[in-house]
Each structure stands twice: as C-alpha cells, then as structure tokens.
Design a protein around this nucleic acid. Sequence first.
DNA 1: TGCAGTGTTGCTTC
DNA 2: CGAAGCAACACTGC
Length: 284
Amino acid sequence: MPELPEVETIVTDLKKLISGLKITNVWSDIPAFQKIKKKIVGRKILGIERKGKNILIGLNQDKTLLVHQKMTGHLMYGKWKRENGAWRSILPGPMRDDPENRFIHLIFFLSNGRQLALCDMRKFAKVVVLPTEKALKELEQLGPEPLAKNFNFKSFSKIIKNKHSKIKSVLMDQSVIAGIGNIYSDEILWLAGIHPVKKATDLKEKELKKIYLATKPVLKRAISARGSSYIDYRDAFGKKGKYQEIQNAYGLEGQKCKKRDGGIIKRIKIGGRSAHFCPIHQKL
DNA sequence: TGCAGTGTTGCTTC
DNA sequence: CGAAGCAACACTGC
C-alpha cells in the first residue's frame, strides 16, 4: 500500500514523535514478530529515515529496526488498551473507534507511555532487527531516490532506456527508481502523457524527459496531501491522506480525463496490476 | 455464494 | 539473464 509519499509522511512524523525514546516492551500475535522482542527491549531510538518504501529506525548499539509496510501495513503512534482480545485506542481522535484497530499485530511500548503500533490486515509487512550495516546492505539494490538532489535526467534515462518491459512496470521496479508503486506510476504517466504499455526501450529522449519531469511534482504533491488513503492507509495519528481527492488517473476508470481532452479514463492490466490512463493524451 | 480483485515483493518459471 | 507469473494473507464487492 504505502508508496514513497505515504512512507515519507510517516517518517517525517515519527522523527518528531519517537526520536530519543526507549523501547520498553514489545507485543505481537505473530510468532515471527515475537522473536524481535529480546533483540530490542531496552534499546534507544536514535533516528528514523526512509529509503524507497522502507522505514529504518536506528537504535543504539548499531542496530536498525527495518520496516516495510508492503500492501496494507501502517504504523500509528498512540495508546491502546487490550479489551476482550482486541486493542482499543484510548486517546481521543480518529483512531478511537477505527475498525482498522482490529488489525494491530505488533506494538512497541515506549518510555513516554505511548505506543507505536503496526496495523496490517494482510500480514505481509516485514519487520526485522539487524546490525545497521546489514540493513543497509539489504537495501543496496534500491535505485536512486527520485526526490534527492542528485536525481538527474542523465542517470534516470540511462537506467530506463535499455529496459524491455512496459514503462509502467519499469517505474515500479525498485531497482530502477526507489519508492514508486501502482498509484504513483499511473499518476506520473498521466502527467507526462505517456501510455503505460509503451516499452521503455522504445521511448524517445523527449518522452523520457517528460516522465522525468513529471516524477518529482507528482510525488511532492502527494506528500503535501499526506499520501493516498484508498482503503486502509493512515498516518501516525490515524488520519487518512487526501491525495485520492486530487488524483488524475488511479481509480478513476470511466471518468472524464481532468485534462478536458475528451478522454475517458481506461483501466487495463499490466503485469497483473491495474493501470489507469487517458487514451486521448496518453497515446501508444 | 464464490470468486476476482486489492496500494508489494520475492521466488519460481520460461 | 531478463521478463512474466504467482503465492504470501485477509477482506470487500460484484
């Protein structure tokens, strides 16, 4: 679920909320997660950063808590109480009676009395504690960060030009660019005016440039909107993102293209994923 | 009722 | 080797 904008939103918030705190206890109903308890209880949280869609929580003694939220995972900061076998938020706010609470599978108890909870309906999320060096090594295969200052057209086009897959799939390939998934690949191609099925290797210099130039604005706008909450994404405070209200392609099948070019947004399958595009201004 | 579809990734297959 | 297909899981909507 969470792509770069959603992960960036949570990381920015968590930096302010949990940096400097100690982890005092860990609860989980998933055996794999229960094992991390003895590795991190008593450790201090030094800092938090994002790499692609990964969240790295730096701990003392050179350990890193590596979290990938995959499809439906999201971290929330608050306070929950176990009631009748379920976790219930006891703070005022949107988490109070959010049905999402029933999917809490992991809780870190913090030294200020608050908790960091992982909500994950489909249980795909990855949470591991590794020596920092190892964690960084695991993420070595990630492509460049599209929002970094050194993300330039030359390196961007060089990687993409010789890929033989469809451009949408290439944009979602984490080793090509880090952080782009199904929603934002649709949005980037809509803004660039490129058909998602087009083979990357067939793109002309001018078309590559359009994609490159569309990438940053789409991601930045999504970060400003605090991400998309198509189904279950929540920010650290249990609030939904607003990008789905300003989307141009994703999830808009059958609606008029917002470019007012007379197109009706079409939905097709690409590599097993749904792709949305305007057949008028995104021609093959 | 049952089954296709869902924002990700990595393993298997060709 | 690179590209494509599918499974991991739980739930929703047609």
